[in-house]
Amino acid sequence: MKKKLIVTHQLPRGPFSALKDDFEILWPDADAFGNEELLENLKDADAVVTVFGKSFKTKMINAAPRLKLIANYGAGVDNIDLDAANGEGIVVTNTPDAVTEPTAELAMGLMLNVARRISEFDRELRAGNITDWGVMSNLSSTLQGKTLGIVGMGAIGRALARRASAFGMNIIYHNRNRVSEETEEKLEARFTDLENLLRNADFVSLHVPLTPETDGMIGLSELKLMKTSAFLINTARGAVLNQTALIEVLKNKEIAGAGLDVYQNEPEVPAELLEMNNVVVSPHVGSATRETREIMSKQVVGIIDDFFQGMTGIPVVNPMVLSSGQYRFKQESSS
């Protein structure tokens, strides 16, 4: 008898054909399942593919008594109620590797864009508002020789450091745990505390996961430590940064600008940010390339297959469920 797999949103389907012999795969007719339709389908589901930024909370988990695996399509799992999954013995996985390079690429692009005023100039030229092409007109800021402060030196932070180094930037970083000396030497990066990083960086780029510890970690007091000539970049999660505080310091010209891909109440973007010429915005597209989406589908398919073949080497984000011996797959296999 085939197992039942629910894919909550439309994703590249090709890689999922590898599961067709073992799984009945249910796809939404539209971009995503409606809430009631999803709850109904979850009643006898063995596995579900969730999507980063799209809520999969307690009500959905409670509606799925047979669910053994939540395979999240994306690196961050703040969209999933991990406590509820743990309590029910459900294994949760993610796809961290695929998002690393494209997200670092976007962070670098946001830095270049806001510093060199690319989007601003594009808008103004199209509107016919730039008539002065003088040597000392339309000036912007260069990246070469500037200091980049990376908050969160995980895979994406390190990938950004490599790119920034190629632009001739100096790298400082803050991380919960200091990386190895070998990594620091390779990236030419120097470890420091958060306060020192904020005071000295010309660009601050956020790359931490959203956890209770990082929720709101960059607030008004932290932003006020930054140079008035500094730029803030956020491709992590919107809630890591106090959006109201950011708007305040931008209005008061206490920092020079911001490049944002994530927001506190997505898909809502505050009108104040949209009206500022020194803010570049994008709609949470850090990993949104055609190539990356295809790779992510392949990875999540591999994870599902490996899980039901014995869970060898898959990226489990709640390993305590495995160590407790109470996960549903084990119970079912042994019964």
Rank of each mutant, 00 (worst) to 15 (best):
S333Y: 02
T211Q: 10
L187E: 04
D132E: 08
P212R: 05
L39K: 15
N113I: 11
I247M: 01
I314E: 04
I218C: 03
T93G: 03
A63P: 06
V316S: 11
P319A: 01
R123T: 01
R163L: 10
I314A: 08
P65M: 06
G219T: 04
A159S: 12
E101N: 06
N94M: 04
T100P: 02
Q264G: 01
G302L: 03
T235N: 01
G154V: 08
T183M: 14
N129W: 04
E275Y: 04
E195P: 01
K2R: 11
G216L: 13
R176A: 05
E294H: 14
A245P: 01
L250T: 00
D97G: 13
I303G: 07
M217K: 02
P96A: 07
I233V: 09
D81S: 10
T192Q: 15
I171N: 05
E291K: 13
A271V: 02
D132V: 04
T192R: 07
E184L: 04
S55M: 03
M320G: 14
P12S: 03
E222G: 01
S287L: 10
E272D: 09
F52W: 10
L112G: 06
P212L: 09
H174A: 07
P209E: 04
S55N: 11
N200I: 07
E124N: 10
L139D: 06
Q243S: 07
L241F: 02
L241P: 05
K186D: 13
L206C: 12
V285A: 13
F329T: 00
V301H: 12
E294M: 11
I255M: 07
E213R: 13
A159R: 01
V300K: 14
K59Y: 03
P15L: 04
F231A: 05
V281E: 08
I171V: 14
S335D: 13
L110K: 08
A85R: 03
E182T: 15
M296I: 12
A107I: 03
K2T: 07
G74P: 05
V281T: 15
L225N: 01
